[in-house]
Nucleic acid binder design. Structure first.
Length: 589
RNA sequence: GCGCUCGUGGCUCAAUGGAUAGAGCACCGGCCUUCUAAGCCGUAGGUUGCAGGUUCGAGUCCUGCCGGGCGCACCA
């Protein structure tokens, strides 16, 4: 619908320009500046279905008062009775567009014929987008926060596909680095323990029960084969960590594989599928990091220097080793507040170095756009990674980063404490088992990702109208129940007479249906899936309100057919919207 | 100290720079025994943290404060 109005305004502008209302030079500028006008949905209903500020924006250029220009535009507007669109000038020079009831009703057959495609568009055609999300370290099971990132990333990917982008999903596996050694050592610690050998907990280890499970599985596979490789765990290393050996690669791989299998299973139960699983190790192995550093170096983005310690922050006594010369990336040139280290003292790359090499790798794969979904605790890295990408590719704004805030679990109004230390750590798996994928997915998308989120376990699984997931899904199920009722009563399927739809509720419902494509496009472009969630709640409310006040299965077949057609269109849009969120649309509940 | 982020009715949150800032809970008032579920309809509730600025027009953009969250060394 919005396209129709944009088209009207554009043609009117062209006509004004070519009819010589404006001089040739002005006309060209006029048309170009015409791109700046907006067609939007007025908040105030009496202002019509759409409104444009074209006359306000272009009045200075035209040398006319806004209202005068609006008059000219209006006169040149190719609308007539048949178009079903009426326009008028209002306020300081807005042009408002009203769709006739007849014109609005044509949406119903349009939705019916487009079916699942209604809401999809082609504005993103030609874009190749890589969405990287989750990327949880393979050192333990996914927790609720990872779940939010997973759902957000997947919904963004779905939205981008819906506007015609070519989308791929990628998971970056941090299977290199110190935390992996800690994982391996944690497994060996439990391994010795399970085999009844003397053992002292190493200084750093993962305490979760899953580590013991991995250790048992390792025993099942390899028996006592690794015992002599972990003698050192019989000694205390709290004082001197130098005796800690690196765990054997076979053990580490076993553990990573085990954890990743769990993670994949969790993702699978949320119906999230990745196109690529990118291993940090392969990046190291294939020389990706050296390549990235060389690339930076060649363009003078690297220097050796000394970093100032951050001010106002306590420096742990053991950590003071300042004034050390290190290899730095000149991120300050691109607005970062400090240069960032690329190599550690021992010459091995920092995590940051690996990360920019990874993003360089992504950029070289030919995507027109990269989207990353990170936890808010990584917010401090956005600028430096973007800066590095800009330095390496010369492209600004190649990478969009969406940050997701914390999830607070509540039950019965009380907060469920999540604490690794206390062992009351709530995994995503537990929440999925408790409430199901639909509830988790929908609920995680009920807030903008930058805002904290309360997840009420009791409410999320309740079958009540206070539960937004239930409320929306139930609206969809009701459409199907009407069909069942129709058959039960042996009423004939008739086409109905759409002109019988005249009530305010009916018109409002149709208008809402027309809003769906714009909502999808806006959500995709701004990477804000919660807009769809809000939209669906609004639509479901309008649907339920209508259902409660009007008898859909009216005695009069013409009216009944028309109402059924409207309700069916609403059901289609709800199904399409839920699909964008990855939530099922049940036919009965 | 610095960076990111958020600040909107009592509560939880919406609002591509547009006209009179919207929902849902809760509250209050009314209706209801009807296609699937104790539901439905309505009223009221606001100086958008504060102060400036840009603009024809600011919750939205800029600057400075105040407050919450997250982060800040060769950890990933």
């Amino acid at each position: 619908m919005r396209e129709i109005v944009i088209g009207l305004v554009a043609r009117s502008l062209e006509r004004l320009a070519t009819e010589g209302v404006l001089s040739g030079e002005l006309a060209a500028a006029f048309l170009e500046r015409g791109a700046e006008f907006k067609v939007e949905r007025p908040r105030e209903k009496s202002h019509g279905d759409f409104s444009t500020n074209a006359a306000l924006v272009l009045s200075r250029l035209a040398g006319m008062k806004p209202r005068e220009l609006a008059q000219r535009l209006l006169a040149a507007m190719p609308t007539d009775q048949a178009s079903g669109v009426r326009c008028e000038i209002a306020g300081p020079g807005f042009i408002n567009f009203h769709f006739s009831a007849e014109r609005l009703r044509t949406l119903i057959p349009e939705i019916a014929s487009r079916g699942r495609a209604y809401g999809r568009s082609r504005s993103g055609v030609g874009q190749r987008v890589l969405v990287e999300f989750v990327s949880a370290n393979p050192t333990g099971p996914m927790h609720v926060g990872h779940g939010r990132g997973a759902v957000t990333g997947d919904a963004i990917a779905r939205l981008l596909s819906a506007i015609g982008c070519e989308v791929e999903r990628e998971y970056y596996i941090n299977d290199a680095g110190a935390q992996i050694d800690v994982l391996g050592r944690s497994v060996l610690y439990r391994y010795r323990e399970c085999l009844g050998r003397e053992v002292v907990a190493p200084p750093d280890y993962y305490p979760g029960e899953y580590v013991t499970e991995i250790a048992r599985a390792l025993i099942d596979r390899d028996g006592e084969r690794w015992l002599e490789r972990c003698d050192y765990l019989a000694r205390d290393h709290a004082e001197d960590k130098s005796g800690l050996e690196r765990p054997p690669v076979e053990v580490v791989d076993f553990a990573i594989t085990w954890v990743m299998r769990e993670i994949r299973a969790d993702l699978e139960s949320m119906r999230i599928h990745f196109d690529h699983w990118f291993s940090e190790r392969t990046l190291h192995a294939e020389g990706g990091i050296d390549r990235a550093l060389a690339h930076l170096s060649a363009h003078d983005w690297i220097h050796e220097g000394v970093l100032e310690p951050p001010k106002g922050r306590e420096v742990a006594a053991s950590e003071e080793s300042d004034n050390r010369v290190q290899v730095l990336f000149r991120s300050t040139r691109l607005g970062d507040d400090s240069d960032r280290p690329l190599l550690k003292a021992d010459g091995t790359p920092t995590y940051f170095a690996a990360d920019i090499a990874y993003h360089f790798h992504k950029a070289q794969r030919g995507y027109t756009r990269l989207v990353d979904v990170w936890g808010a605790d990584h917010g401090g890295y956005v600028k430096r990674v973007q800066a590095a990408l800009e330095a390496m590719t010369g492209q600004k704004d190649l990478l969009d980063v969406v940050l997701t805030q914390m999830v607070n679990l509540t039950q019965g109004g009380k907060q469920v404490r999540m604490s690794k230390r206390a062992g009351t750590f709530v995994t995503l798996r537990e929440v999925l088992d408790e409430t199901g994928s639909d509830a988790v997915r929908f609920w995680f998308l009920t807030r903008s990702s930058g805002a904290g989120l309360d997840f009420d376990l009791d409410l999320a699984k309740s079958r009540s109208n206070d539960n937004p997931v239930f409320y929306v899904q139930y609206a969809h199920a009701r459409v199907y129940s009407l069909h069942a009722k129709l058959k039960e009563r042996e009423l004939p399927e008739v086409e109905g007479d759409l002109s019988r739809l005249t009530a305010d509720e009916e018109m409002n419902l149709i208008r809402l249906l027309g809003l769906f494509p714009e909502t999808v496009e806006g959500a995709a472009l701004s990477r804000e899936p919660h807009r769809v969630t809000y939209y669906l709640s609004d639509l479901a409310a309008a649907f339920h309100g209508y259902y409660n006040n009007y008898r859909i299965l009216d005695e009069d077949p013409d009216l009944r057919g028309a109402r059924l057609a409207l309700v069916r269109a609403a059901g289609q849009v709800i199904a399409n919207g839920l699909d964008l969120l990855g939530v099922s649309a049940p036919e009965s509940m």
